[in-house]
């Protein structure tokens, strides 16, 4: 459990600070509403953690999210398709984007930074084309999805938690998860051990695209609409959350649960600053500082262990 001490400490400190400074912050309602607002970030963080572990990066998640929700909206509004069909089409769009990212990265050995940067543009362009640059309003068509909740927690939130738990289990308990870590740690050694890194990477990128579509569904059900500009800059928020969680940008190291902590830290910080009524520049300044501070505080979790670590931390929970 020591590996979560640093994260829990940061979350607790943030809650304590805002409870003392922001009016009406320390309420069940605050946490319930914050929880209901983060499922899409949690879901994206799972995919991003995987991609970073295999030493890749996916900059296109925000655009792919926008495209997937655009497809959902257009299917429901313009073509009047039944909900399951629209959902399937939306998931298909995300899956396809992820598959393109993965196959371009693998087949031509391109850096995923470049491939997904291209996808960031391309998917955003497609989104504008698909929606005709109009916000799609479809709340009445998805009423079945929005009405479900448990203890005030929405269905998307519950699904996001389930995905995160499943993501963590797959990462640390399955052959696939172990292969991801091996590839991220040393791709050539993995290849020479008889693993096919290309296949694993293709699956990881495709999965990340699919999860972006799931995130789109989570967001759309709450907002009841799909805006062509949705998810702009999301990739950086997600990468920040995952990195706060201690996932290495160099690959091979990271856990999903810690990424979720990263998401929670950023969400609570954002919520707190809003409730403080902070001005825009102040918000940006403080967010930047907290990202760095969180990483530093977490660094000291090592002092909870007995031996000093020689170099990098090994992946904690294999």
């Amino acid at each position: 459990m020591t590996e979560y001490v640093g994260m829990v400490f940061v979350v607790a400190s943030l809650i304590a600070i805002f409870s003392l400074t922001a009016p009406n912050f320390f309420q069940v309602e605050t946490f319930r509403m914050t929880a209901n607002q983060i499922p899409e970030v949690i879901i994206l963080a799972v995919g991003m953690t995987y991609v970073l572990i295999v030493a890749g990066i996916d900059l296109s998640v925000g655009s792919v999210l926008a495209l997937s929700s655009a497809v959902l909206g257009v299917c429901l509004v313009r073509y009047q398709l039944p909900l399951p069909v629209a959902v399937a089409a939306s998931l298909g769009a995300g899956l396809a984007c992820g598959a393109v990212n993965g196959s371009l990265t693998v087949a031509w050995r391109l850096p995923s930074f470049i491939v997904t940067l291209a996808m960031l543009q391309a998917a955003r362009g497609l989104t504008h084309i698909v929606t005709g640059q109009q916000t799609q309003y479809f709340r009445p068509m998805i009423r079945e999805l929005t009405s479900i909740s448990v203890l005030g927690l929405s269905l998307p939130f519950l699904i996001a938690v389930a995905i995160a738990v499943l993501g963590q289990i797959v990462l640390c308990r399955t052959v696939f998860g172990r292969y991801m870590v091996a590839i991220g740690t040393n791709e050539e050694a993995a290849r020479l051990s008889g693993i096919d890194p290309r296949r694993i990477k293709l699956v990881v990128f495709t999965l990340c695209g699919l999860l972006a579509a799931v995130a789109a569904l989570a967001q759309s059900t709450r907002l009841g609409s799909a805006t062509p500009t949705a998810g702009t800059g999301f990739e950086l928020e997600v990468i920040a959350a995952v990195v706060i969680g201690g996932t290495s940008l160099m690959g091979g190291r990271g856990t999903v649960i810690r990424s979720v902590f990263g998401v929670i830290i950023i969400a609570i910080l954002g919520r707190g600053l809003i409730q403080l009524g902070a001005a825009d520049p102040t918000k940006q300044l403080i967010t930047g500082c907290v990202i760095v501070a969180a990483v530093i505080v977490d660094h000291y979790r090592h002092s909870f262990r007995k031996a000093p670590l020689p170099t990098e931390t090994p992946s904690p929970s294999l």
């Binding site: 308990r173 052959v175 091996a182 740690t185 040393n186 993995a190 693993i195 170099t311 990098e312 931390t313």
Partner: peptide, 28 residues
């Protein structure tokens, strides 16, 4: 080209035949 330096001895040894240690070929 051979080792996964930051990873434990256990992971380095089992990697090439992980499936034999996994239920249904997936579940370690």
């Amino acid at each position: 080209q051979g080792l996964f330096l930051p990873l434990p001895v256990r992971v380095n040894i089992s990697l090439a035949r992980l499936r034999a240690l996994a239920a249904f070929g997936h579940w370690i």
